[in-house]
Design a protein around this nucleic acid. Sequence first.
DNA 1: CGTGTAAGGAATTCTGACACG
DNA 2: CGTGTAAGGAATTCTGACACG
Lengths: 96, 96
Amino acid sequence: MNYKDKSILTISSVEELTGLTARQIRYYEQRKLVIPARTEGGTRKYSINDVEKLIDINSKIIEGHSTYEIRQEERKNEKEMLKEMLKGQINAQFRR
Amino acid sequence: MNYKDKSILTISSVEELTGLTARQIRYYEQRKLVIPARTEGGTRKYSINDVEKLIDINSKIIEGHSTYEIRQEERKNEKEMLKEMLKGQINAQFRR
DNA sequence: CGTGTAAGGAATTCTGACACG
DNA sequence: CGTGTAAGGAATTCTGACACG
């Protein structure tokens, strides 16, 4: 696991790094766009990757996209990633 | 300023990243080895560089060095860095 | 829909001190 | 000397709700 995937940032640090407000960050979570890890006590912990995602998401919102659209877009990308991975697996089978 | 110099980590994240206890981390600060930034409210904020420093410091302590020795060592290194920088400046003057 | 805000409680962090060795 | 711990208070974060548009 890369350091970029370590969930180590509090929401206030993420506010600072992204320029967003805590309210925005929590709302994007509610819309299932960026789901942070949690401490035992329930405090949100974000990774560097989450920070980058949040910046992207906010850009898209500023461009006029809805959180729903952004979510759908992400879903699509995930599916394509899966397809590619499957292709790779299948090809690997045939090469044996 | 690099992301490594951004003070964004709470002491609990630093505990996780370094494997040290908060007590140790605060003690090294008291001994002037790693001085974190602070929020307005006084909460410590560490950078990635601080994390790396803390790990180094703890290694040296485990090796039997005292915090005083480690501090002196760091002072020496700082002075040498200064010397190098001065050399560079002087050479730059002569090259004109 | 996306964001601001006030409210009350819970989790986190802070400092100074006592302890051991 | 370096670290653990209990104590009390302060800073931070949490959730659910009302508001606007």
